[in-house]
Every structure is written in C-alpha cells, then in structure tokens.
Design a protein around this nucleic acid. Structure first.
Lengths: 202, 202, 202, 202
DNA sequence: GATGAATGAGCTTTCATTCAT
DNA sequence: TATGAATGAAAGCTCATTCAT
C-alpha cells in the first residue's frame, strides 16, 4: 500500500511542479512563447515527461485555468460565509477580493481572463473559471437588492457592469505596468467606491 | 507625373490591404499565430512583398496600433469640439464613443489594448495609443470638476477608475463572446450610468 | 546497461557521420553554400536531428576544425618521438607530414586553414588548430638550431617563413586543382629541399 | 559627340564605383555575405542598376579578379623592363613586388587567389589572373638559370615551389591577422632570402 | 514512470533576379 | 539609363509531438 501511495504522491507532486512552472512561464513570456522544451528544461525533466501528465500544451493550459478558479472560488466562498449577514459588505469585500486575487496571482488571472479568450482555439467561457467567479458576484448583488441596499431594475445588467469594471482595473494594473497609475490601492478604492455609490442612489 | 502618382497610390493601397488583413488575422488568431507566410497567402502576394512595406513583423504590428489610435483620437477630438460647452455630456458621450470604437473595430482595440501589452517584447505604453486616448478622458473629467458637475478629490484617480471601467466593458464584450451578456447596449448604458452617478454625489 | 552503451555508440556514430558529411560538403561547396538542410539530406536525416548533436552551424564547423587538428597533432607527436635524436630529420619529415596531411585530408585542411579565417565571424587563431600545429614546427627549428644543424638569427622568423612556405604548397595544391603543376611529389620535394638548403648555409 | 562621350564616361565611372565597392565588401564580408542589395545600398543605386553593368554576381566577381591581375601584371612588367639586365634582382624584386601587391591590395589578392578557388562554381585557373602572374615568375627563374645565377634541374618545379612559398606568406599575412607574426617585413625578408639562398647553392 | 532520438511542419527573414515602365 | 515592385527559393532554426525502449 505504502509504495503505491508514495508513488501517487510523487506523481501528483511532479504534476503540480509542472503546473507551477508553466503558469509562471506563460505569464512571463506569453502562451506562444513558452515551448514544451523550455518548460521541460525549467523543471529539469525531459519534454516527454510532460506528456505523461498532460495530453498536450492546450490541456496543460486549461488545467491551469481551472486551478486558478478553484483558488478564487474558495476565497469568495469563505468570504460569503463570513459576511452572510451583511450583503453590501460582502459585495464590497468580494470586489476587493477579486481584484486582490488578480494582483496576487497575475499569472493565473492573465492566463485565465486575458490571454485565454484571445487564443485561437476553441476556448469556452461557459462553465469556465470566469463564469463561476462571476456567479458569486451576481449572487451578492441579488442579495443586496433583496435587502434593499442597492437599487437596480436589472440584476444581471448590474452584476455584469460591476464585473466589467473590476475586470478593467485588474487587467489594466496587470498588463499596463508602465502606465503612471496613481497608487494601486487608491485606484482600487476609487473604483469600488465609484461603483457602490453609483448603485446606492437612484 | 501621372505614372508616379498612380504608382504611389497603388503602393499605398497595397500597404493598406496588408494592414487590414493583418489586423483581422492578429485578432482572430493572436499575434504569435499569424505568420508572415499566412498573411502573404491571405493577400495573395509573396511573403517578400510584405517586407517591401514593413521592416518586420513587429513594425507591422506597431503601425496597426498607431492607426487604431489615430481613428479613436480623431473621433474624441470631434466630440470635444462639438460638446465643448457641456463637459458632462462630453464625458458621457466620450465614454460611449470609446466603447463604441472598441466594438466597431474590435481588431483595432484588441490588438492595441489587449494583445499589445501581453506581447513579450519591449512595448511601451508611454506615448502609445492608449496613453493618448486616455488623456482625453482625463481632460473631460477635469473640465467637469472645474464646472462643479463632478466631485472628486483626485482627478487622476477618478479618470483612471473611469478608464478602467470602460476598458473592462469593452474588452469583455470583445473577448468573451460566448458569455451570456445582457443586450450589449443595456450593459453599456448600465455601466456608464453607474459611473456617472457614482461621481455626481459625494 | 548494454542498452545504454549501444545507444551511446549509435549516437556517437551518427555524430561522426554528420561531421564527415559536413567536412566534405564544406570543402566542396564552401561554408556558406552548405545549408543545414542539404547536409541533412546527404545523411538522410531530418534537419532537426543535426541540432541534437550540434548547437548550430558554427559549432559544427568548429568541431570540424578541432577534429582536424587532433589528427595532425597526433601525427607530428609520433614523428617527434620517433626522430627525437635527429632534429633535422624531424623537421624534414615534419614538413612532409604537414603537407601530406593537408593533401590526404584536403577537406580538413581547407576548412581549418583556408576557409576558417575568411569567414565573417569572430574566429580566433590564438589557441586554434593552426597555432598548435605551428608550435611543433617552431620546436623542430629550435632543436635544429640548438644542435647547430641550421643557422638563423631569429628562430621565430625562420619558423614562420617555413610554415608560410609549406602552407603555400599545401593550399595551392588543394585549391588550384586545374593548374598544370609538375607532379605533386616533385613539387613537394623541391619546396622542402629549397627550404632546408636555404637554412643550412649562411 | 560630346554628349555621347560624357555618357560613356559616366557609365564607366559607375561601373568602376561598383567594382570598388564590391571588392571592399567581398573581402570584408566574404563572397557569400555580400548581397546585391547591400552592394546597391553602399553605392546608393538600386539593385537593378548593377545588373545593367554586370550579368550577375559571378560575373561581377570575375571582373574583379581580372582587374586585380591587370594591376599586378602591369607592375611586374615594369619591373622586368627596369631590371632586364639583372635577372636575379628581377626575381628578388619580383617576389617582393608580388607580396607587396597582395598586402597593399588584400581585397584583390584574397578575392582572386584565396576566395575564388574555394567557391563552389566553375572557376578556371587556366587563363586566370593567377596563371598570368605566375608566368612572369617562371620567366624570371628561366632567365636566372640561363645566366647561371640559379641552379635547378627543373625550371617549372622550381618556379612553382617559389610561387607556393610566396603565396604562403602573402595569404597567411592577409588571413591570419591575429597570429603573432614577427614584424611583417622581417618575415617577408626571411622568406625571400631563404628561397634565393636555397636555389643558389646546390 | 521516464527518456533519448527523431521528425515534419513551420517560423522570420534574406537572397539573386526579373519585368514593366 | 535607371528604377520600384515583385517573386520563388532558400536560409538557419525551433516547434509540438511521437515512438521505441
């Protein structure tokens, strides 16, 4: 038994090692500029080994996206539990958490929300990381409206507008590194407050 | 004389043909997936011919960005002239114009504002299309504040938050084509109103 | 174990096959006229395979030079041992061995001593095949002088003059194939005797 | 008349300009590394223009060789006239003149005597620059022998040995620029004296 | 489970050359 | 006489991937 378990553990470790290296490289160099060979070199295994764990480059990339989402979703889930009594606080904190997540894991974020859709192949947003992360946001908005803390005639439209805005901040901060932004926190604060204020009064 | 002129016109036409094809392809396939060979095939010329018009692939790409900006800037400039008396209207219309531009020329937009920064090489936002387009927005905000129509303690932070938000809508609508968005205009309207409302009261 | 060894042997064999083909082709066609593709075709492997053995074309070429020298040096070394008692004989035989080597391995020789320096890149004679081969000659001259068999005021100048002369015969015989030379051996004999006689009397 | 003459003169001037630029470039970069385009750029004409003066790259190259020889031959001819009474002096001075010529016009020399034969195409030494230059040397040797100043059983063998030796010095000095040669003149002197001494006594 | 050898397809770019004007 | 536009061919090299071991 022990032998089998150890083996499986080792296999999982290598798989994770590959994923980690890939994520870093994908972000640093861009999807197309990462070759399986270079990736193999980084982890100090042969290129062939990667194929034992992932069908091809595309699958490797998709796993990366899934993994990213799992982390973000987990975070939002915890937040929701903690702030279930105060939906507006959950919304506010949720937005901040979303942006924070993006900035803390720019590799994850860029790969999943910025790079992925511009790839040529058959990427599907439906059922993807993005969709699931977004559904939390919609839930938060719905709660706020139910509790009378926000006013909107169209929950979906509102939730999407919010998502768009915070995706905007997040992606700009990640990709346009040389733009003379005001201090990061200031910009985030400003955006979130602008959003919330815009939804409170009507 | 006529001969020379005709030649120059033809040359310019081919140049434009290349640019148009390149933009489409860059957007459809991503920068790295467009080869000079494929591009040449598309326009039905030999690969070498492209090099008669553009030094290399990177230059071709950069010209594309420049061209995009020229169009957007022109549009914002006209708008500014027309609405110089009513800064809030200019801001509102400017935001809409920015988004419209992106949706009408998704290739231009994506290539310039989404793809460009994710390229590996030494892209500089400073002095780029993005920066110049953004400066119009900042100007509009400043005017509104001067006329007392918007309230903010920090014009830069506000302008950047606004830009982030509309970049968010624009880029999501362009890239996440399979997301079940509410009708496009509804989402745009919602976002702009959310922004403006959020800045009026304080 | 046996498996690994066989593999290594096979790898080494292929490597040598590439080197041999390359040497012939480089000499027949000149460095620039040999493409990796043509080379690959000759050995009936794919171009990529060559890159498994050599980093790039330049490295392949340099390995060729190194290999050439190893052979020449070995020959001179043996000669030196055998004729250590009779320096003049060693000089005479050494000169002949040098020329013989060139004519027997015209590819090696031309590539190393004729083509190499005319290449554009940063070839360094210092520490190269040529330098090491030359040092044997200088040693032989020095010995002859020490034993009073040759007279010269400047050992370096003399050694270089000798080298120049035999390099001249060798390279002419290799490159100017259509010149109506007197029989090869006659010319070699004549040159060597001319040299030795010129150094004995003074 | 005047118009036609001027035109012809101009044409000849351009032709010469092309030859001069080509010679420099061929030597600096090697035959294969000089492209018609680069050459055209250097002389600030269009590539097509070159083809008005030379059938193709090979012809341009061959003209270069011919031109080189004309210069060397002229020099040797003058020398011969001047020293017709003293064949040994003519030989000695002729050798020096040959080497000097090579060092003074390394482009000419390398292109004609070193590069040319290693090119892939159908170069013919017969009737070439080399052959004609060599014939002067043979003549000088024959004269010396006739006058009893040199002893040899085989004029051709001797003349060829001589040529080989001085070709050796010349080409080494031109191509192996980084070899720590003794001072140039010293080496030349040494070689010539070695040759002449070697032929006088027998 | 992991690897070394190998490949076909493709890349960006440059070449010598031609042709209509 | 000179040119600008255009091209087919080829260059060196890297890619994702497979297969036998």
């Amino acid at each position: 038994m022990g032998v089998r378990e150890r083996r499986e553990r080792q296999k999982e470790e290598l798989r994770q090692e590959i994923l980690d290296a890939a994520r870093e490289m994908f972000f640093e160099e861009g999807y197309e500029n990462v070759s399986m060979r270079k990736l193999a070199e980084r982890i100090e295994y042969s290129p062939t080994t990667i194929y034992l764990h992932f069908k091809d480059k595309a699958e490797l990339f998709n796993q990366l996206c899934d993994e990213s989402f799992a982390k973000l979703a987990l975070r939002l889930e915890k937040l929701q539990k903690r702030l279930s009594r105060d939906p507006l606080a959950f919304l506010r904190e949720g937005l901040r958490a979303y942006i924070d997540f993006g900035l803390k894991h720019p590799h994850h974020y860029a790969v999943t929300f910025i790079l992925a859709p511009t790839r040529g192949d058959d990427y599907q947003f439906q059922g993807s990381a993005g969709e699931r992360a977004f559904s939390y946001m919609r839930g938060a908005v719905a709660l706020c409206v139910a509790k009378g803390e926000l006013q909107t005639a169209d929950i979906d439209a509102t939730a999407q507008a919010i998502w768009a805005s915070i995706h905007g901040v997040t992606s700009l901060l990640i990709t346009h590194k040389d733009f003379p932004f005001v201090p990061k926190n200031k910009l985030i604060e400003e955006t979130i407050e602008m959003i919330v204020r815009g939804l409170q009064t009507r």
